[in-house]
């Protein structure tokens, strides 16, 4: 099973080797989707994969280490009404989650492939891509 979580760090929690513990103690695969951390704390978006039981334990561990945890269903959302299908995002998305279908002329967004890197957010002229953190 896979789940995405947003972590909020206090300054004290920043020095905790949390990703290391998640991997070693809870046998989780950890994919860092986004990180904005400095000495005064920060935010991190992780994708955790592993057994449901391990994910639950891992999240409990994070909470007990003073890290704020909020699960998210999806990291990035597209407002389909705002998208003009211009295609600007297509060449910058590193995972090809956004591709132009020449047949329909539309740009499709595959949420499964999206790693919430955020590169497309400020590249989209009508601001149709939104990161949910």
């Amino acid at each position: 099973m896979k789940t995405k979580v947003v972590l909020n760090f206090s300054p004290e929690a920043v020095n905790n080797p949390i990703t290391h513990s998640l991997i070693v103690k809870y046998h989780l695969l950890v994919n860092i989707l986004r990180a904005e951390i400095d000495e005064i704390g920060g935010k991190m978006v992780l994708e955790l994969s592993g057994k449901a039981e391990d994910i639950r334990k891992g999240i409990d561990y994070l909470k007990s280490s003073g890290v704020g945890v909020r699960p998210i269903k999806e990291g990035v959302r597209r407002d389909d009404d705002a998208c003009t299908h211009c295609g600007m995002c297509v060449s910058i998305c590193p995972t090809k989650a956004l591709v132009l279908d020449l047949k329909t002329g539309k740009v499709t967004f595959d949420e499964e492939k999206c790693v919430a890197c955020g590169v497309c957010i400020d590249a989209c002229p009508p601001r149709a891509m939104e990161i949910l953190i």
């Binding site: 211009c86 295609g87 297509v90 060449s91 910058i92 132009l100 020449l102 329909t104």
Partner: peptide, 25 residues
């Protein structure tokens, strides 16, 4: 350009259109 990739200085470079083919149609 429409193929999604062009070669520039020996490098494969992904291309993006800025005008909407969908809306043009």
């Amino acid at each position: 350009l429409r193929s999604g990739e062009i070669e520039v200085k020996g490098k494969k470079v992904p291309t993006s259109s800025l005008s909407s083919l969908y809306k043009a149609r």
